[in-house]
Design a binder for these strands. Structure first.
Lengths: 181, 181
DNA sequence: CTACCCGAGTTCCCCGAGGGAACTTAAGGG
DNA sequence: CCCTTAAGTTCCCTCGGGGAACTCGGGTAG
């Protein structure tokens, strides 16, 4: 496979994807943030091969997303906890979950709810503008080269935006669900 | 590899990850939403193997995330465009990008900026509560089983939350950067 | 004191997915 | 008539994932 190295591309998505763009990493982070922090618990909960789990965990520790630490001395046992860098992946998980809920929840509804302790209500996460709080969409944002971007041919950033897309038709979550079946 | 099927797990993250948890899919969606919609353009821009690109694209079309459509008749040429389902992956991309910016942007700053056309300012996306607009974090949210969840042993949802985590130390983006180097 | 469980990995083998490059098909263009 | 472009497809090779067994350090039960 020799996964193409994406970490050095001038794109934050590529960099994030280099770590996170793996079927297991998101699930591992979900579990760790959820309180499933022990090796065996993760292996059992995820159904992941122990070999791959060990590899992912050490990669995540290398990256500073998790820390391996002893949680009891006798017998010595280690587990994994999220660092701040790891915790900040939470919005990514929320976005994935929200999307999965919208497009794959059966008629029964989503498998989980997120309760916001701040306002006490079950909530859905939205990607909002840090300044005005309005939701950010493909349609109301545009991308510009940033200071850290080696701006040049081939430089890819997110979003010069849709060319023609004013139809409004296309599918709904329900249609999507049906199509997926 | 025989990638373990995650799509049928009672977790929206797993379902989303089943599609999106692949190094290339996020980059492909970024490009398509960005206006890079032609096969060769994608292959060239991403440096992805044409074989894998073809496989990913047809998977994404199957899933209803992209549509393959003719953009000129003579000679007949097809390209790919995002459906609504595809566009709604935007928040996931934004979250990944934001995280990448926070933790991997060099001293020069992030490679790209997001301009919110609504308020006209360069913005950073935050995951906010749909009700009160407050940012959602690991610390201020909790998860509860949802209606669609087969609640039982082994059911994993996001977030019963951190046990002990009131230290406040650990690393900062800068420390993380340094550690990653 | 020995035998039997953990928890946390590591090792082994097999197979299939990804990389890479060449080949194909269809329609212009010089 | 041959070259070029777009959009894939095919082939071979390697490497990483699945799966299960094995290891290793340290209890704990009998």
């Amino acid at each position: 496979m020799t996964r193409t190295p994406l970490a050095d591309v001038a794109c934050s998505i590529a960099r994030a994807t280099d770590l996170f763009g793996d079927a297991w990493t998101a699930l591992i982070m979900r579990d760790v943030l959820t309180g499933v922090t022990r090796f065996d618990a993760l292996a059992h909960d995820l159904g992941i091969s122990r070999k791959v789990l060990a590899a992912r965990l050490s990669r995540l520790v290398e990256e500073g997303v998790l820390v391996r630490e002893r949680y009891q001395e006798r017998p010595p046992r280690e587990h994994y906890r999220a660092t701040r860098k790891g915790e900040e992946l939470y919005p990514v998980l929320l976005a994935l979950m929200e999307w999965g809920d919208r497009w794959y929840a059966g008629p029964a509804g989503p498998p989980a709810r997120i309760r916001h302790l701040g306002c006490g209500r079950d909530t859905t996460p939205v990607s909002a503008c840090a300044h005005c709080g309005e939701p950010l969409t493909v349609g109301n944002t545009t991308q510009l080269p940033g200071p850290g971007g080696r701006t040049g041919p081939g430089t890819r950033v997110l979003g010069p935006l849709l060319s023609g897309r004013e139809d409004g038709r296309e599918d709904t979550p329900e249609a999507g669900r049906a199509a997926a079946v």
